[in-house]
Design a protein around this nucleic acid. Sequence first.
DNA 1: GCCGTTTTCGGCCCGACTGTTTTCAGTCG
Length: 575
Amino acid sequence: MNNVELAQTFEKIADLLEIKGEVIYITLAYRRAAESLRILGQEADTYRATQPLTSIPGIGKAIAEKITELLDTGKLGFLEKLEAEVPVSLLEILEVPDVGPKKVALFWKQASITSLNELEIAAQERQLRSLPGMGEKSEQRILEGIAALRRRSHRMTLGVARPIGLRWIEWLRAQPCVLQAEFAGSLRRWRSTIGDLDLVAACEDPSALMAAFTGHPDVERVLGQGENKSSIELKSGLKLQLWIQPAANFGSLLQYATGSKEHNVRLRELALKQGWSLSERGLTSPDGKLVSYPDEESLYQALGLLWITPELREDRGEIQAALAGKLPALLHTSALKAELHSHTTWSDGVSSIREMAEAARQRGLKVLAITDHSASLGIAGGLKAEDLLKQRVEIDQVQKELGSDILLLQGSEVEIKADGTLDHPDEVLARLDIVIASLHVSLRQPRKEITERLLKVMRNPHVDIIGHPSGRLLPNREGADLDMDAVLTSAKEHGLALEINANPARLDLDEVYARRAAEMGIPLTINTDAHSSTDLDLREYGVSVARRAWVEPEGVINAWPVEKITVWLKSRGRK
DNA sequence: GCCGTTTTCGGCCCGACTGTTTTCAGTCG
């Protein structure tokens, strides 16, 4: 059982216990443990070989025993007993918006409803309104909720959400009373996928702004409307929330709406220890006096903290670090000097070598590696060995024309074939300036097989970088079922670099393994995998992964001085 | 169920909004 499966098991336990009516803090403990496992960056099975599971935050004696049972037997007696008490099909009802554990228990115990279909029929037949605490409106809301659930649009990638968020900010700032407006939530934290869009505004006439918001022409339904907070569903299915506060309190509001929820909980606990109570309205002193904060910096400062960049606000140690004055010095896009993964018209790119080089130079890059696909990736027009010789001539020519402003490297993104061999023979790889090996096909191989396939490639001394290691495609296609512990260990052993692919549909390595890799001292490389010159602007998405992974500039090859990059390549046997 | 520069027991974040209610419970973020 891997960490994701363990986490899902504990989330299921939490849901079932909540419906059962267990004390809320017990369910919270299971959820916290699940999250800890998700971000561990090392399989629990490997972890326990060197240190006790109870050293993981949020995991104590009871949950550690359950993990051990799951790892050793694949089963959990506690869960089996629980499932015999609480029907698992109730969990699908829990997904309905505005239906929580209390309502689920009510439907189950008082109306014998145990599935989504039964709930829908009962609502259609007007049987729910007679239950205690229910009425006509609640019944209608449940029918709407079921419909919303069925047409639910899945999470968006960051690359889709950012332009939408920016347009809404523009709209907000154009409204008459608005003094400040930002997007908040997971979009501001640069999470790789985004569910709903959270917006905040400072405005002295909130009711007018709320009316404009809920009356926007793109609105399909108004989900809620109040003085300080409203939420809408657009015709596209996207949900938006808007919070409004006076400008004097914009910092508290922005902080609150940015989250994450877990970060905010920790922050409030910290405030409480210092005798304050924290909310989106500001800090309340023990004698009930409310203090507002116009910006986030002053709010964090009031709690004795350095300002924490939104990317770190996930309750992964950032508050302790800020208290100790030891926040990481994170990477900025402007620090990137190199792009080591790009495609041109020689394979499936749309820009020429010259256009790519010019675009890279304009963006302040000092190194550009041209890494077109290898032959077997037929769909991408991959290059054969003889094509590489011809391409080298063109690269040399462009290099001569552009002079020393930018260093062009000839590389290849070599296909890792299903049997674990590479698409070019070693003598061809040896002639190149840099080699990326990537998985594109047969990603569904069983864990053992696909891990061994990748490890075999990593042992080849002519491979410098593993491109987008998992092969995932956001928001929906899972990556390969790799044993990442083994992959990271091998990268460390062979001095290989692992890529953080900056394409918002990839962001692969993800932040969990990027953090682990950096801790292990494995060099990371942030590349856009550009298929056009404008794709070079995707660098900021890759940087966001590194930032969320606490990676500092020294850990990223692209942020090294050019001389250090060439020294690294030489150390790998490149000329 | 977890955790400890107040505590190994007794705490564990906070407010807005909705609907059903005459003061509050449930849900959400």
